[in-house]
Amino acid sequence: MPFSFKQFHIDDSRCGMPVSTDGVMLGAWANIKQSNTILDIGAGSGLLTLMAAQRAEQLAQTAAGLTSNAVKIVAVELDDLAAQDCLDNIANSPWAEMIEFHHGAIQDFSAQHLAQCQAKRSPLFDSIICNPPYFDNGPQSTQQQRATARHTDSLSFSELLKHIELLLAPHGAASLILPVESEARFTGALTQTSLAISKRVSISTVSNKPPRRLLLELKHQAKIESTEHSSLVISDPSGQYSQQMIALCREFYLKL
């Protein structure tokens, strides 16, 4: 279903995973400060890419000597139909010139980009954002696109983290969102890399419910002194967005 934000529009009609609260929270929270190069892994409809572009432009307007023209965002998407949505949404946005799109697997993009880095034609990424597949068992959707987008058959945590580790600059940060029940598997895969969690936000739908999602920021271990823990509640008991949620997402949602 098409979805309009304050500064851009998303048509996700061909995408396996539609616009979601998870994606909006991640896009608003992801650490892209002082980032000249940003990578969106599994871009889908382009939501995270366009949120990063909007934020990069806003950051440039408040930072002396920095312009959004200096920022390059790369979106990588494997699925053919989602790629069509992503390309259309980028082209119809105010930031098309800032964004480069790659249609293919992150494994192939990673190999190509690392070769360019070795030839000193491209830098590693200051920021990586990803709303990854997270189910590795249980029933899969009968809609193949949605099953691919949600299940790790197409991209395991180990495979994803390997490429984040390779593509993330030494000073960089990667931002992801996961269901709470996937945390153990994710952190198990994380121990096989040089990355560690620098920030962990537990998210509850309402204040009296246990956390259901986690926002995670990863950095190379050498850059981490300790993990910062916090929490976020989406709605108050009356069903209205909490002040935390409003503060996080007010630059995007039309009615905030």
Rank of each mutant, 00 (worst) to 15 (best):
A169N: 06
A169F: 02
P170D: 06
P170L: 05
H171P: 07
G172A: 09
G172H: 04
G172S: 08
A173L: 08
A173C: 15
A173V: 15
A174M: 03
S175E: 08
S175G: 11
I177Q: 14
I177S: 14
I177V: 15
L178D: 05
P179Y: 06
P179H: 07
P179N: 07
V180P: 05
E181L: 09
E181G: 12
S182K: 00
S182Q: 05
E183L: 13
E183D: 11
E183S: 12
A184L: 05
R185S: 15
R185M: 14
F186N: 07
F186K: 01
F186H: 04
T187S: 13
T187I: 13
T187W: 06
G188K: 10
G188I: 01
G188P: 02
G188C: 09
A189C: 11
A189W: 00
A189H: 02
A189L: 00
A189I: 00
L190K: 00
L190C: 09
L190I: 07
L190F: 07
L190V: 08
L190W: 00
T191C: 10
T191N: 09
Q192C: 14
Q192F: 12
T193H: 05
T193S: 13
S194N: 15
L195R: 02
L195Q: 04
L195W: 07
L195D: 03
L195P: 01
L195C: 10
A196I: 04
A196N: 08
A196L: 04
A196E: 07
A196W: 03
I197H: 06
I197T: 11
I197M: 10
I197Q: 05
I197E: 06
I197N: 06
I197V: 15
S198P: 02
S198V: 11
K199Y: 06
R200K: 13
V201G: 03
V201R: 01
V201L: 04
V201I: 13
V201K: 01
S202M: 01
I203H: 04
I203Q: 03
S204L: 02
S204D: 07
T205K: 10
V206I: 10
V206F: 10
V206N: 13
S207M: 08
S207K: 04
S207I: 09
N208Q: 08
K209T: 12
K209V: 09
K209M: 13
P210A: 11
P210W: 01
P210N: 05
P210F: 02
P210H: 04
P211Y: 04
P211A: 15
P211D: 14
R212D: 14
R212V: 15
R213Q: 11
R213E: 08
L214Y: 03
L214W: 01
L214A: 13
L214H: 07
L215D: 02
L215H: 04
L215V: 07
L216S: 07
L216E: 06
L216T: 05
L216P: 01
L216F: 02
L216I: 12
